[in-house]
């Protein structure tokens, strides 16, 4: 960080308050801009490597090189990690349209969520609606995740996935509303391949492998992803304005296990900042966000230099 930028980052709250709204906006954008426009190679390696890892579990188990009971938690971990690289691609963080590496952005976007049996184009279309209408009960496809506490979230998450539950309806409604109903074909194909694979494995004597390498890990991963990516950073989900849609929070499990979502507020304000840069961006923008009335969780009195490190 250069001397000028460091000075910007450590301006006192009084000095920030003295700035005109235009100067504060410009400073916020300038600080955020420093964290954009770089290719997150880590996310690329993560997305493609994680898919290879999950796929490799199958032959390892089938050829008896790996116990199914050990492969089960590994598959759960892998599927839990399969969404975020695609999320980077959904926001064109890896490469924007027209960039020479755009193909890589789309490759990671399509391939990394395969273990979740979720099509990239549907994820992207519905996620853009989530960003456009965060916390809107009618228009945010992820709104139904909201619940009063952790246990209510878990109960809600299980109930929403039942046959008569509304889990997929909000996504379908969002596609219809945005005139992208043709993408339901993608969802249909993914669902057919997923259930067809489960059925085929089950009737060829590999039902336990299908259950413990894909079906159950997928459900556990979905719960985990919904908790940290949707529920926790948007709780209590009552504000819809730019600086109130999300919050920062301190996870008891740390930043890694909470998948970097402690700083999801940065992602909603500046979706082009790569996930790996959101902690640093948050600590540099924290005082400005506090002035904006953001909920910055337990980070208010933290020392930004040591925390960012």
């Amino acid at each position: 960080m250069g001397e000028t930028s460091m000075n910007e980052a450590i301006m006192s709250k009084d000095a920030l308050q003295a700035l005109s709204p235009e100067a504060l906006d410009a400073l916020e954008r300038k600080i955020a801009g420093r964290h954009m426009h770089r290719i997150p190679w880590g996310a690329v390696a993560w997305g493609l490597g994680n898919l290879i890892f999950w796929l490799s579990l199958w032959p390892l188990v089938f050829l008896d090189y790996l116990s199914l009971w050990l492969a089960f938690p590994l598959a759960t971990l892998s599927i839990s990690l399969s969404y975020l690289p695609s999320h980077e691609a959904q926001h064109s963080i890896i490469a924007r349209e027209g960039h020479r590496l755009r193909w890589l952005n789309e490759l990671v976007g399509h391939l990394s969520p395969i273990p979740l049996a979720q099509p990239y184009r549907v994820l992207k279309a519905t996620h853009m609606e989530h960003h456009a209408h965060s916390n809107d009960p009618e228009l945010d496809p992820d709104y139904a995740v909201h619940a009063k506490d952790d246990w209510a979230f878990l109960k809600n998450s299980i109930l929403r996935r039942q046959p008569a539950g509304p889990a997929q309806k909000a996504y379908g409604d969002a596609l219809v509303r945005t005139h992208q109903e043709h993408l339901m074909i993608d969802a249909l194909i993914f669902n057919a391949v997923f259930t067809g694979t489960l059925f085929a494995l089950a009737w060829t004597g590999h039902a336990l492998e299908a259950a413990l390498l894909w079906w159950l890990p997928k459900h556990l991963a979905q719960t985990y992803i919904q908790y940290y990516l949707s529920w926790a950073p948007h709780h209590p989900g009552i504000r819809q304005e730019r600086y109130g849609q999300t919050r920062a929070f301190k996870s008891q499990l740390g930043n890694l296990i909470s998948m970097g979502m402690q700083f999801h507020i940065i992602h909603h304000l500046y979706p082009r900042i790569p996930l790996s840069s959101t902690p640093a961006a948050f600590h540099e923008l924290k005082d400005i966000l506090e002035l904006r009335g953001c909920d910055i969780g337990g980070w208010a009195d933290s020392d930004h230099k040591s925390e960012a490190a």
């Binding site: 046959p163 057919a192 259930t195 059925f199 089950a202 004597g205 039902a207 336990l208 299908a210």
Partner: peptide, 19 residues
Amino acid sequence: LFSPVVFGLAFLGPLLSEI
């Protein structure tokens, strides 16, 4: 094809027998 009955017969059935 995506109904619970088909899932119960085509997946849970063989899974339960393996258990």
